[in-house]
């Protein structure tokens, strides 16, 4: 099995130490061996669920949260704005 743990970690925005990488590689090999037990079937064609036609609601403004309620959980706030590291290079 060819599993590039470093690449997957990057895609998932996770960081591992070399020891962790080794541990995860071994554990995931076992799990992948388990999930490979799928039946041999033709997996072409579209995937739709005919039993479950979704019913959408109208896109109307209904719930009213105050700005303060919504940012009360933010890790860092200044002047009513959420603070994040600089994203644009100088």
């Amino acid at each position: 099995m060819d599993m590039d743990i470093k690449r997957l970690a990057k895609l998932a925005r996770l960081k591992f130490t070399p020891e962790e990488e080794e541990k995860y590689a071994a554990q995931m090999a076992n799990i992948v061996a388990m999930v490979e037990k799928l039946p041999d079937l033709d997996a072409s064609g579209p995937l739709i669920d005919p039993d479950n036609p979704m019913e959408f609601r109208k896109d109307e403004v209904q719930r009213n949260y105050s700005r303060n309620e919504l940012i009360a959980n933010a890790p860092e706030v200044q002047a009513g704005c959420i603070v994040v590291p600089k994203t644009v290079a100088e």
Binding site: M3, I5, L8, A9, L11, A12, L14, Y24, Q27, M28, I31, V32, V35
Partner: peptide
């Protein structure tokens, strides 16, 4: 983390 990694893989 294991399940996120497996999901990312598949």
């Amino acid at each position: 983390k294991r399940r996120i990694m497996l999901g990312t893989y598949v």
